[in-house]
Write a protein that binds this DNA or RNA. Sequence first.
DNA 1: TAGATTGTTAATCGATTAACAATC
DNA 2: TAGATTGTTAATCGATTAACAATC
Lengths: 226, 226
Amino acid sequence: MLRRKRIAWPTVVRLSEYLIILEELVENGVDVVTSRELAGLYGNNANQVRQDLFCLAETGRVGQGYSVPVLERTIRQALGLTEPRGVAIVGCGRLGTVLALHVPLANYGLNLVAAFDVDPNIVGKNLGAVRIDHADRMTEICRDRRVRVAALSVPEEAAQDSASKLVAAGVVGILNYTRVRLKVPARVVVQNRQIICSFIQIACAAFCGHDSLPSPGLVPDADVGR
Amino acid sequence: MLRRKRIAWPTVVRLSEYLIILEELVENGVDVVTSRELAGLYGNNANQVRQDLFCLAETGRVGQGYSVPVLERTIRQALGLTEPRGVAIVGCGRLGTVLALHVPLANYGLNLVAAFDVDPNIVGKNLGAVRIDHADRMTEICRDRRVRVAALSVPEEAAQDSASKLVAAGVVGILNYTRVRLKVPARVVVQNRQIICSFIQIACAAFCGHDSLPSPGLVPDADVGR
DNA sequence: TAGATTGTTAATCGATTAACAATC
DNA sequence: TAGATTGTTAATCGATTAACAATC
Protein backbone atom coordinates (compact mmCIF):
# COMPACT_ATOMS: atom_id res chain seq x y z
CA MET A 1 0.00 0.00 0.00
CA LEU A 2 3.08 2.23 0.36
CA ARG A 3 4.07 2.41 -3.28
CA ARG A 4 1.21 4.38 -4.87
CA LYS A 5 0.83 3.53 -8.54
CA ARG A 6 0.87 6.38 -11.00
CA ILE A 7 -2.60 7.66 -11.78
CA ALA A 8 -3.78 6.97 -15.33
CA TRP A 9 -3.86 10.12 -17.42
CA PRO A 10 -7.58 10.07 -18.27
CA THR A 11 -8.15 9.80 -14.55
CA VAL A 12 -5.91 12.78 -13.82
CA VAL A 13 -7.94 14.83 -16.28
CA ARG A 14 -11.23 13.83 -14.71
CA LEU A 15 -9.95 14.32 -11.17
CA SER A 16 -9.06 17.90 -12.01
CA GLU A 17 -12.61 18.44 -13.20
CA TYR A 18 -14.18 16.64 -10.26
CA LEU A 19 -12.19 19.04 -8.11
CA ILE A 20 -13.88 22.05 -9.65
CA ILE A 21 -17.28 20.47 -9.09
CA LEU A 22 -16.47 19.57 -5.49
CA GLU A 23 -15.40 23.13 -4.75
CA GLU A 24 -18.75 24.33 -5.92
CA LEU A 25 -20.46 21.75 -3.71
CA VAL A 26 -18.35 22.93 -0.76
CA GLU A 27 -19.44 26.51 -1.46
CA ASN A 28 -23.06 25.40 -1.51
CA GLY A 29 -22.62 23.67 1.83
CA VAL A 30 -23.11 20.16 0.45
CA ASP A 31 -21.49 17.72 2.87
CA VAL A 32 -21.78 14.37 1.18
CA VAL A 33 -21.89 13.25 -2.43
CA THR A 34 -22.37 9.78 -3.88
CA SER A 35 -20.57 8.45 -6.92
CA ARG A 36 -23.92 8.51 -8.67
CA GLU A 37 -24.48 12.18 -7.91
CA LEU A 38 -20.97 13.22 -8.88
CA ALA A 39 -21.33 11.27 -12.11
CA GLY A 40 -24.57 13.11 -12.77
CA LEU A 41 -22.80 16.43 -12.38
CA TYR A 42 -19.77 15.44 -14.42
CA GLY A 43 -21.65 13.64 -17.14
CA ASN A 44 -20.22 10.15 -16.83
CA ASN A 45 -21.31 7.15 -14.74
CA ALA A 46 -20.95 6.04 -11.15
CA ASN A 47 -18.67 3.13 -12.02
CA GLN A 48 -16.16 5.40 -13.63
CA VAL A 49 -16.26 7.83 -10.73
CA ARG A 50 -15.60 5.05 -8.25
CA GLN A 51 -12.85 3.60 -10.39
CA ASP A 52 -11.24 7.06 -10.61
CA LEU A 53 -11.52 7.60 -6.89
CA PHE A 54 -10.18 4.13 -6.23
CA CYS A 55 -6.67 5.42 -6.90
CA LEU A 56 -6.94 7.82 -3.98
CA ALA A 57 -6.29 7.07 -0.37
CA GLU A 58 -9.33 6.05 1.66
CA THR A 59 -12.13 8.52 0.99
CA GLY A 60 -15.67 7.19 0.94
CA ARG A 61 -17.94 5.47 3.44
CA VAL A 62 -19.67 2.37 2.18
CA GLY A 63 -23.39 2.89 2.00
CA GLN A 64 -23.10 6.63 2.60
CA GLY A 65 -21.12 8.30 -0.15
CA TYR A 66 -18.10 10.59 0.00
CA SER A 67 -17.49 13.49 2.33
CA VAL A 68 -17.22 16.45 -0.01
CA PRO A 69 -14.49 18.33 1.90
CA VAL A 70 -12.47 15.18 2.48
CA LEU A 71 -12.72 14.16 -1.16
CA GLU A 72 -11.76 17.63 -2.26
CA ARG A 73 -8.65 17.59 -0.11
CA THR A 74 -7.71 14.08 -1.13
CA ILE A 75 -7.87 14.92 -4.81
CA ARG A 76 -5.70 17.98 -4.28
CA GLN A 77 -3.19 15.77 -2.53
CA ALA A 78 -3.25 13.15 -5.25
CA LEU A 79 -2.72 15.75 -7.98
CA GLY A 80 0.18 17.27 -6.09
CA LEU A 81 -1.51 20.61 -5.52
CA THR A 82 -0.65 20.87 -1.85
CA GLU A 83 2.94 21.83 -2.56
CA PRO A 84 3.30 25.44 -3.67
CA ARG A 85 4.88 25.84 -7.12
CA GLY A 86 6.22 28.89 -8.90
CA VAL A 87 4.53 29.77 -12.16
CA ALA A 88 5.59 32.19 -14.89
CA ILE A 89 3.65 33.76 -17.71
CA VAL A 90 5.78 34.33 -20.79
CA GLY A 91 4.21 36.84 -23.14
CA CYS A 92 1.92 39.38 -21.51
CA GLY A 93 -0.30 40.26 -24.41
CA ARG A 94 -4.02 39.76 -24.27
CA LEU A 95 -3.80 36.02 -23.75
CA GLY A 96 -1.05 36.18 -21.16
CA THR A 97 -3.07 38.77 -19.28
CA VAL A 98 -6.11 36.49 -19.26
CA LEU A 99 -4.01 33.62 -17.94
CA ALA A 100 -2.59 35.75 -15.17
CA LEU A 101 -5.74 37.56 -14.09
CA HIS A 102 -8.63 35.33 -15.05
CA VAL A 103 -7.33 31.95 -13.88
CA PRO A 104 -7.38 31.24 -10.13
CA LEU A 105 -3.88 29.76 -10.04
CA ALA A 106 -3.24 30.56 -6.42
CA ASN A 107 -6.16 28.38 -5.30
CA TYR A 108 -4.16 25.37 -6.41
CA GLY A 109 -0.76 26.24 -5.01
CA LEU A 110 0.29 27.68 -8.34
CA ASN A 111 1.82 31.00 -7.47
CA LEU A 112 2.44 33.48 -10.20
CA VAL A 113 5.93 34.70 -9.41
CA ALA A 114 7.18 36.00 -12.74
CA ALA A 115 5.96 37.47 -16.00
CA PHE A 116 7.88 38.41 -19.12
CA ASP A 117 7.56 40.40 -22.29
CA VAL A 118 9.80 42.27 -24.68
CA ASP A 119 7.56 45.23 -25.44
CA PRO A 120 9.04 48.33 -23.73
CA ASN A 121 5.50 49.64 -23.24
CA ILE A 122 4.68 46.59 -21.16
CA VAL A 123 7.91 45.77 -19.35
CA GLY A 124 7.89 47.40 -15.95
CA LYS A 125 4.14 47.33 -15.58
CA ASN A 126 2.40 44.97 -13.21
CA LEU A 127 0.41 41.88 -14.06
CA GLY A 128 -1.64 41.19 -10.99
CA ALA A 129 0.88 41.20 -8.19
CA VAL A 130 4.00 40.58 -10.28
CA ARG A 131 6.15 42.95 -12.21
CA ILE A 132 6.58 42.23 -15.90
CA ASP A 133 10.27 41.79 -16.60
CA HIS A 134 12.13 41.81 -19.86
CA ALA A 135 12.42 38.41 -21.51
CA ASP A 136 16.20 38.84 -21.60
CA ARG A 137 16.26 38.16 -17.89
CA MET A 138 13.98 35.13 -18.06
CA THR A 139 16.49 32.38 -17.24
CA GLU A 140 18.04 34.29 -14.39
CA ILE A 141 14.75 35.36 -12.81
CA CYS A 142 12.99 32.03 -13.25
CA ARG A 143 15.87 30.25 -11.60
CA ASP A 144 15.95 32.73 -8.72
CA ARG A 145 12.23 32.53 -8.09
CA ARG A 146 12.10 28.77 -8.57
CA VAL A 147 9.61 28.80 -11.41
CA ARG A 148 8.64 25.21 -12.22
CA VAL A 149 5.68 25.65 -14.56
CA ALA A 150 5.24 28.24 -17.30
CA ALA A 151 2.62 29.26 -19.80
CA LEU A 152 3.83 30.36 -23.20
CA SER A 153 1.73 33.02 -24.89
CA VAL A 154 4.28 34.73 -27.11
CA PRO A 155 4.38 35.32 -30.87
CA GLU A 156 5.52 32.31 -32.86
CA GLU A 157 8.99 33.66 -33.56
CA ALA A 158 9.73 33.85 -29.86
CA ALA A 159 8.30 30.49 -28.83
CA GLN A 160 11.20 28.08 -29.15
CA ASP A 161 13.68 30.54 -27.76
CA SER A 162 11.51 31.24 -24.75
CA ALA A 163 10.98 27.54 -24.15
CA SER A 164 14.71 26.92 -24.21
CA LYS A 165 15.31 29.67 -21.68
CA LEU A 166 12.65 28.25 -19.42
CA VAL A 167 14.16 24.79 -19.62
CA ALA A 168 17.57 26.24 -18.83
CA ALA A 169 16.04 27.80 -15.72
CA GLY A 170 14.70 24.48 -14.47
CA VAL A 171 11.10 24.67 -15.62
CA VAL A 172 9.61 21.17 -15.91
CA GLY A 173 6.14 21.86 -17.28
CA ILE A 174 5.15 24.15 -20.14
CA LEU A 175 1.66 25.02 -21.29
CA ASN A 176 2.19 25.97 -24.89
CA TYR A 177 -0.47 28.29 -26.31
CA THR A 178 1.50 28.99 -29.48
CA ARG A 179 1.22 26.80 -32.54
CA VAL A 180 4.94 26.07 -32.60
CA ARG A 181 5.93 22.50 -31.73
CA LEU A 182 8.52 23.01 -29.03
CA LYS A 183 11.71 21.01 -28.81
CA VAL A 184 12.55 20.31 -25.20
CA PRO A 185 14.40 17.56 -23.33
CA ALA A 186 12.31 14.48 -22.55
CA ARG A 187 12.15 15.28 -18.84
CA VAL A 188 10.17 18.45 -19.54
CA VAL A 189 6.44 18.03 -20.09
CA VAL A 190 4.76 20.16 -22.73
CA GLN A 191 1.05 20.41 -23.26
CA ASN A 192 -0.08 22.12 -26.41
CA ARG A 193 -3.16 24.22 -25.90
CA GLN A 194 -3.91 26.03 -29.12
CA ILE A 195 -7.33 27.44 -28.45
CA ILE A 196 -8.31 27.06 -32.09
CA CYS A 197 -8.11 23.29 -31.70
CA SER A 198 -10.95 23.41 -29.16
CA PHE A 199 -13.11 25.20 -31.69
CA ILE A 200 -12.21 22.75 -34.43
CA GLN A 201 -12.99 19.84 -32.15
CA ILE A 202 -16.33 21.15 -30.99
CA ALA A 203 -17.35 21.86 -34.56
CA CYS A 204 -16.42 18.32 -35.53
CA ALA A 205 -18.20 16.86 -32.51
CA ALA A 206 -21.31 18.88 -33.20
CA PHE A 207 -21.50 18.31 -36.94
CA CYS A 208 -19.80 14.97 -37.55
CA GLY A 209 -21.79 13.16 -34.91
CA HIS A 210 -19.70 12.87 -31.78
CA ASP A 211 -22.61 13.69 -29.54
CA SER A 212 -22.44 11.33 -26.61
CA LEU A 213 -18.78 10.82 -26.17
CA PRO A 214 -17.16 9.66 -22.96
CA SER A 215 -13.86 11.32 -23.82
CA PRO A 216 -12.21 13.71 -21.40
CA GLY A 217 -13.74 17.12 -21.72
CA LEU A 218 -16.56 16.07 -23.96
CA VAL A 219 -19.47 16.00 -21.60
CA PRO A 220 -22.92 15.70 -23.08
CA ASP A 221 -26.12 16.02 -21.13
CA ALA A 222 -25.83 14.58 -17.65
CA ASP A 223 -27.37 11.14 -17.37
CA VAL A 224 -28.40 11.28 -13.74
CA GLY A 225 -30.76 8.68 -12.39
CA ARG A 226 -30.64 6.30 -15.25
CA MET B 1 -16.78 2.68 -49.09
CA LEU B 2 -19.77 4.99 -49.19
CA ARG B 3 -20.72 4.84 -45.52
CA ARG B 4 -17.76 6.53 -43.77
CA LYS B 5 -17.40 5.33 -40.22
CA ARG B 6 -17.31 7.95 -37.50
CA ILE B 7 -13.79 8.98 -36.62
CA ALA B 8 -12.64 7.93 -33.14
CA TRP B 9 -12.44 10.87 -30.77
CA PRO B 10 -8.72 10.60 -29.95
CA THR B 11 -8.16 10.63 -33.69
CA VAL B 12 -10.28 13.76 -34.13
CA VAL B 13 -8.17 15.49 -31.51
CA ARG B 14 -4.92 14.49 -33.16
CA LEU B 15 -6.16 15.34 -36.64
CA SER B 16 -6.92 18.88 -35.49
CA GLU B 17 -3.34 19.15 -34.27
CA TYR B 18 -1.83 17.57 -37.36
CA LEU B 19 -3.72 20.21 -39.29
CA ILE B 20 -1.91 23.02 -37.49
CA ILE B 21 1.41 21.34 -38.20
CA LEU B 22 0.56 20.81 -41.85
CA GLU B 23 -0.33 24.45 -42.28
CA GLU B 24 3.06 25.40 -41.02
CA LEU B 25 4.65 22.97 -43.46
CA VAL B 26 2.61 24.50 -46.28
CA GLU B 27 3.85 27.93 -45.27
CA ASN B 28 7.40 26.68 -45.33
CA GLY B 29 6.88 25.27 -48.80
CA VAL B 30 7.23 21.64 -47.77
CA ASP B 31 5.50 19.48 -50.38
CA VAL B 32 5.65 15.99 -48.99
CA VAL B 33 5.72 14.56 -45.51
CA THR B 34 6.06 10.95 -44.37
CA SER B 35 4.19 9.43 -41.46
CA ARG B 36 7.52 9.19 -39.72
CA GLU B 37 8.25 12.90 -40.14
CA LEU B 38 4.80 13.99 -39.07
CA ALA B 39 5.07 11.74 -36.04
CA GLY B 40 8.38 13.40 -35.24
CA LEU B 41 6.75 16.80 -35.31
CA TYR B 42 3.68 15.75 -33.37
CA GLY B 43 5.47 13.65 -30.82
CA ASN B 44 3.92 10.26 -31.43
CA ASN B 45 4.88 7.42 -33.77
CA ALA B 46 4.48 6.65 -37.46
CA ASN B 47 2.08 3.76 -36.83
CA GLN B 48 -0.35 5.99 -35.02
CA VAL B 49 -0.14 8.66 -37.69
CA ARG B 50 -0.92 6.14 -40.40
CA GLN B 51 -3.72 4.62 -38.40
CA ASP B 52 -5.18 8.10 -37.85
CA LEU B 53 -4.86 8.96 -41.52
CA PHE B 54 -6.37 5.62 -42.47
CA CYS B 55 -9.83 6.98 -41.67
CA LEU B 56 -9.43 9.62 -44.38
CA ALA B 57 -10.09 9.21 -48.05
CA GLU B 58 -7.09 8.27 -50.16
CA THR B 59 -4.21 10.55 -49.28
CA GLY B 60 -0.74 9.08 -49.38
CA ARG B 61 1.44 7.50 -52.02
CA VAL B 62 3.04 4.23 -51.04
CA GLY B 63 6.78 4.59 -50.85
CA GLN B 64 6.65 8.38 -51.10
CA GLY B 65 4.74 9.88 -48.21
CA TYR B 66 1.83 12.29 -48.15
CA SER B 67 1.33 15.40 -50.21
CA VAL B 68 1.18 18.17 -47.60
CA PRO B 69 -1.46 20.31 -49.33
CA VAL B 70 -3.63 17.31 -50.18
CA LEU B 71 -3.41 15.96 -46.65
CA GLU B 72 -4.22 19.36 -45.23
CA ARG B 73 -7.34 19.65 -47.38
CA THR B 74 -8.42 16.10 -46.66
CA ILE B 75 -8.21 16.60 -42.92
CA ARG B 76 -10.25 19.80 -43.17
CA GLN B 77 -12.85 17.85 -45.11
CA ALA B 78 -12.92 15.01 -42.62
CA LEU B 79 -13.33 17.36 -39.69
CA GLY B 80 -16.16 19.17 -41.42
CA LEU B 81 -14.31 22.47 -41.70
CA THR B 82 -15.17 23.10 -45.31
CA GLU B 83 -18.73 24.14 -44.52
CA PRO B 84 -18.90 27.65 -43.10
CA ARG B 85 -20.46 27.83 -39.61
CA GLY B 86 -21.67 30.76 -37.58
CA VAL B 87 -19.95 31.27 -34.25
CA ALA B 88 -20.91 33.49 -31.32
CA ILE B 89 -18.91 34.73 -28.36
CA VAL B 90 -21.02 35.12 -25.26
CA GLY B 91 -19.35 37.34 -22.71
CA CYS B 92 -16.93 39.91 -24.09
CA GLY B 93 -14.68 40.44 -21.13
CA ARG B 94 -10.99 39.81 -21.31
CA LEU B 95 -11.39 36.13 -22.16
CA GLY B 96 -14.13 36.63 -24.74
CA THR B 97 -11.99 39.27 -26.39
CA VAL B 98 -9.06 36.89 -26.61
CA LEU B 99 -11.27 34.23 -28.16
CA ALA B 100 -12.59 36.65 -30.74
CA LEU B 101 -9.38 38.42 -31.66
CA HIS B 102 -6.59 35.99 -30.92
CA VAL B 103 -8.02 32.78 -32.37
CA PRO B 104 -7.99 32.38 -36.17
CA LEU B 105 -11.55 31.08 -36.37
CA ALA B 106 -12.16 32.22 -39.92
CA ASN B 107 -9.32 30.03 -41.23
CA TYR B 108 -11.47 27.03 -40.40
CA GLY B 109 -14.82 28.16 -41.71
CA LEU B 110 -15.80 29.34 -38.26
CA ASN B 111 -17.18 32.80 -38.83
CA LEU B 112 -17.69 35.06 -35.88
CA VAL B 113 -21.12 36.50 -36.57
CA ALA B 114 -22.33 37.55 -33.12
CA ALA B 115 -21.05 38.67 -29.74
CA PHE B 116 -22.93 39.43 -26.54
CA ASP B 117 -22.52 41.11 -23.21
CA VAL B 118 -24.69 42.86 -20.65
CA ASP B 119 -22.33 45.64 -19.66
CA PRO B 120 -23.66 48.93 -21.09
CA ASN B 121 -20.08 50.14 -21.48
CA ILE B 122 -19.37 47.24 -23.81
CA VAL B 123 -22.63 46.72 -25.66
CA GLY B 124 -22.55 48.64 -28.93
CA LYS B 125 -18.80 48.44 -29.30
CA ASN B 126 -17.16 46.22 -31.86
CA LEU B 127 -15.31 42.97 -31.31
CA GLY B 128 -13.30 42.46 -34.44
CA ALA B 129 -15.80 42.84 -37.21
CA VAL B 130 -18.95 42.18 -35.19
CA ARG B 131 -21.01 44.47 -33.02
CA ILE B 132 -21.45 43.46 -29.42
CA ASP B 133 -25.18 43.12 -28.76
CA HIS B 134 -27.03 42.92 -25.50
CA ALA B 135 -27.50 39.41 -24.15
CA ASP B 136 -31.24 39.99 -24.02
CA ARG B 137 -31.32 39.66 -27.77
CA MET B 138 -29.19 36.54 -27.89
CA THR B 139 -31.81 33.99 -28.93
CA GLU B 140 -33.24 36.18 -31.62
CA ILE B 141 -29.91 37.25 -33.09
CA CYS B 142 -28.31 33.81 -32.94
CA ARG B 143 -31.27 32.32 -34.75
CA ASP B 144 -31.22 35.04 -37.42
CA ARG B 145 -27.51 34.72 -38.04
CA ARG B 146 -27.55 30.93 -37.89
CA VAL B 147 -25.08 30.60 -35.06
CA ARG B 148 -24.25 26.91 -34.58
CA VAL B 149 -21.28 27.02 -32.21
CA ALA B 150 -20.73 29.34 -29.27
CA ALA B 151 -18.07 30.02 -26.69
CA LEU B 152 -19.26 30.88 -23.21
CA SER B 153 -17.04 33.28 -21.28
CA VAL B 154 -19.51 34.91 -18.92
CA PRO B 155 -19.60 35.18 -15.13
CA GLU B 156 -20.89 32.06 -13.39
CA GLU B 157 -24.30 33.49 -12.58
CA ALA B 158 -25.03 34.01 -16.25
CA ALA B 159 -23.73 30.72 -17.57
CA GLN B 160 -26.75 28.41 -17.46
CA ASP B 161 -29.11 31.08 -18.62
CA SER B 162 -26.89 31.96 -21.57
CA ALA B 163 -26.54 28.29 -22.49
CA SER B 164 -30.29 27.84 -22.49
CA LYS B 165 -30.75 30.83 -24.75
CA LEU B 166 -28.15 29.49 -27.15
CA VAL B 167 -29.81 26.10 -27.24
CA ALA B 168 -33.16 27.75 -27.91
CA ALA B 169 -31.55 29.52 -30.85
CA GLY B 170 -30.36 26.27 -32.40
CA VAL B 171 -26.75 26.19 -31.25
CA VAL B 172 -25.42 22.62 -31.25
CA GLY B 173 -21.93 23.03 -29.84
CA ILE B 174 -20.84 25.01 -26.79
CA LEU B 175 -17.32 25.63 -25.58
CA ASN B 176 -17.80 26.28 -21.91
CA TYR B 177 -15.05 28.35 -20.29
CA THR B 178 -16.99 28.86 -17.06
CA ARG B 179 -16.81 26.40 -14.21
CA VAL B 180 -20.56 25.84 -14.22
CA ARG B 181 -21.73 22.41 -15.40
CA LEU B 182 -24.27 23.26 -18.04
CA LYS B 183 -27.55 21.42 -18.42
CA VAL B 184 -28.41 21.08 -22.08
CA PRO B 185 -30.37 18.58 -24.18
CA ALA B 186 -28.44 15.50 -25.24
CA ARG B 187 -28.22 16.61 -28.86
CA VAL B 188 -26.10 19.62 -27.88
CA VAL B 189 -22.40 18.99 -27.38
CA VAL B 190 -20.64 20.80 -24.58
CA GLN B 191 -16.92 20.83 -24.04
CA ASN B 192 -15.72 22.22 -20.75
CA ARG B 193 -12.54 24.21 -21.07
CA GLN B 194 -11.73 25.68 -17.72
CA ILE B 195 -8.24 27.01 -18.25
CA ILE B 196 -7.29 26.28 -14.67
CA CYS B 197 -7.65 22.56 -15.40
CA SER B 198 -4.80 22.77 -17.89
CA PHE B 199 -2.58 24.26 -15.23
CA ILE B 200 -3.59 21.61 -12.72
CA GLN B 201 -2.93 18.88 -15.26
CA ILE B 202 0.47 20.14 -16.30
CA ALA B 203 1.50 20.48 -12.68
CA CYS B 204 0.41 16.93 -12.04
CA ALA B 205 2.12 15.66 -15.17
CA ALA B 206 5.32 17.47 -14.29
CA PHE B 207 5.47 16.56 -10.62
CA CYS B 208 3.63 13.26 -10.33
CA GLY B 209 5.57 11.60 -13.11
CA HIS B 210 3.49 11.67 -16.25
CA ASP B 211 6.41 12.56 -18.43
CA SER B 212 6.15 10.41 -21.51
CA LEU B 213 2.47 10.13 -22.03
CA PRO B 214 0.82 9.37 -25.35
CA SER B 215 -2.38 11.11 -24.32
CA PRO B 216 -3.92 13.78 -26.52
CA GLY B 217 -2.22 17.07 -25.88
CA LEU B 218 0.55 15.69 -23.78
CA VAL B 219 3.47 15.70 -26.13
CA PRO B 220 6.91 15.14 -24.69
CA ASP B 221 10.11 15.45 -26.62
CA ALA B 222 9.74 14.27 -30.21
CA ASP B 223 11.11 10.77 -30.73
CA VAL B 224 12.10 11.09 -34.34
CA GLY B 225 14.36 8.52 -35.83
CA ARG B 226 14.09 5.95 -33.13
C1' DT C 1 -32.72 -5.31 9.83
C1' DA C 2 -33.06 -3.69 5.03
C1' DG C 3 -31.42 -0.48 1.72
C1' DA C 4 -27.81 1.88 -0.15
C1' DT C 5 -23.36 2.53 -1.73
C1' DT C 6 -18.54 1.79 -1.54
C1' DG C 7 -14.14 -0.80 -2.67
C1' DT C 8 -12.35 -3.90 -5.74
C1' DT C 9 -11.91 -7.59 -9.03
C1' DA C 10 -13.23 -9.42 -13.55
C1' DA C 11 -15.05 -8.80 -18.25
C1' DT C 12 -15.49 -6.02 -22.11
C1' DC C 13 -14.46 -2.75 -25.16
C1' DG C 14 -11.67 0.34 -27.78
C1' DA C 15 -7.30 2.42 -28.87
C1' DT C 16 -2.47 1.83 -29.73
C1' DT C 17 1.19 -0.76 -31.48
C1' DA C 18 3.18 -4.15 -34.42
C1' DA C 19 3.68 -6.31 -38.61
C1' DC C 20 3.85 -6.95 -43.38
C1' DA C 21 2.14 -7.36 -48.18
C1' DA C 22 1.42 -4.14 -51.80
C1' DT C 23 3.55 -0.76 -54.61
C1' DC C 24 5.71 3.51 -55.84
C1' DT D 1 15.81 -3.41 -59.36
C1' DA D 2 16.22 -2.15 -54.41
C1' DG D 3 14.72 0.85 -50.85
C1' DA D 4 11.18 3.19 -48.79
C1' DT D 5 6.77 3.89 -47.16
C1' DT D 6 1.91 3.36 -47.38
C1' DG D 7 -2.57 0.86 -46.46
C1' DT D 8 -4.46 -2.41 -43.70
C1' DT D 9 -5.06 -6.37 -40.73
C1' DA D 10 -3.83 -8.64 -36.38
C1' DA D 11 -1.96 -8.49 -31.64
C1' DT D 12 -1.42 -6.07 -27.55
C1' DC D 13 -2.33 -3.03 -24.24
C1' DG D 14 -5.01 -0.07 -21.35
C1' DA D 15 -9.29 2.08 -20.07
C1' DT D 16 -14.12 1.60 -19.26
C1' DT D 17 -17.90 -0.98 -17.74
C1' DA D 18 -20.03 -4.52 -15.12
C1' DA D 19 -20.64 -7.01 -11.13
C1' DC D 20 -20.85 -8.05 -6.43
C1' DA D 21 -19.20 -8.95 -1.69
C1' DA D 22 -18.34 -6.09 2.21
C1' DT D 23 -20.33 -2.87 5.29
C1' DC D 24 -22.31 1.37 6.89
